[in-house]
Computed example of a mutant assay.
Amino acid sequence: MFGERTATGCVGTLGFIAPEMLAGEEYNAGVDWFSFGVIIKEMITVTSGYNRTQAKIPVDVAKDIINKLLCNNPSQRLGVNGNIRQHQFFVHIDWVSLEALRVAPPHVPGPPTIRTSSGVFNIDHIEREEARRSPIRAEDQELFAGFSYISPKWRTFP
């Protein structure tokens, strides 16, 4: 949604949904900036399950971007109001090289694994094995074409 376009309805993952969407109000692209703020907050405050080199982000810079993204007033939310790329949080990013796909990712995850007392197991391998043992034959899968399920608890929001 660009410009002054708005939408209604409630979609998304609880915990990431902007207040105006939960309130059933019309909303604009600011809802995505709010969700982005939640993601940044989680990335900074939650310990990851894998080791990686972490950027040293000053606490005041992290707090500032999170506060500006999680602003309750959608028209004042960073991204809607101001160029997010110019925020100090992104000072180290070369946007031209990034958009030209000339920047190597800072972390390339390996296959997902699970550690148990018996060793380390590749989860992708386990899931593929489970799929092979599925009681539903491949030719029967088309019976589910177009099927979707929405839990009744997700049909309405407070």
Rank of each mutant, 00 (worst) to 15 (best):
K41L: 12
T47I: 12
F34A: 02
T13D: 07
A7K: 04
E42A: 12
S48Y: 08
G37K: 05
E25K: 08
T47D: 12
T47K: 12
A7F: 01
D32Q: 06
M21D: 08
E20G: 05
I39P: 00
Y27L: 02
N28R: 02
S35I: 01
M43V: 05
K41D: 05
V11Q: 15
G24A: 10
V31R: 11
G49T: 15
F36R: 04
M21Q: 10
D32E: 06
G12A: 04
T13C: 09
V46S: 13
F36C: 09
N28A: 04
G24V: 06
V31W: 10
G9Y: 07
M43N: 03
E26N: 11
S35R: 09
F16G: 06
E42R: 13
Y27G: 04
E25A: 15
E42L: 15
T47Y: 09
G49K: 06
P19L: 01
G37V: 05
V11T: 14
P19D: 07
W33F: 10
F34E: 03
I39A: 13
E20D: 11
G30I: 04
M21R: 06
I17V: 14
G12C: 11
M21G: 03
D32I: 00
I40A: 08
Y27C: 11
N28F: 04
A18K: 01
G30S: 13
I40C: 14
F36H: 07
L14P: 11
G15D: 06
K41M: 11
G24D: 06
A18Q: 03
A7M: 13
A23H: 06
F36V: 08
N28V: 00
V11C: 14
G24M: 04
P19A: 00
E42P: 04
Y27N: 01
S35A: 13
V31N: 11
V46K: 15
L22D: 04
T13L: 11
E20F: 04
P19Y: 02
I44V: 11
M43D: 07
V31T: 10
T13I: 01
I17H: 03
G24Q: 05
S35F: 07
G12T: 02
M43Y: 07
S35P: 00
A18S: 15
P19T: 02
T45D: 07
C10Y: 09
V38D: 03
G30H: 02
T8W: 08
V46Q: 15
E25Q: 15
G9S: 08
I44Y: 08
E25M: 14
E42H: 10
G37E: 02
P19M: 00
L22R: 03
D32S: 07
E25N: 14
A23E: 11
C10M: 13
I44A: 12
T47G: 10
M21F: 05
G15P: 03
E26D: 14
G15R: 01
A7D: 13
T47R: 12
C10L: 14
C10S: 14
V31G: 14
T47C: 10
C10T: 14
E20S: 07
G37A: 10
I44E: 12
M21V: 14
N28Y: 05
A29L: 10
S35T: 00
I39C: 12
S48P: 10
C10E: 00
E26H: 08
A7G: 15
G49R: 04
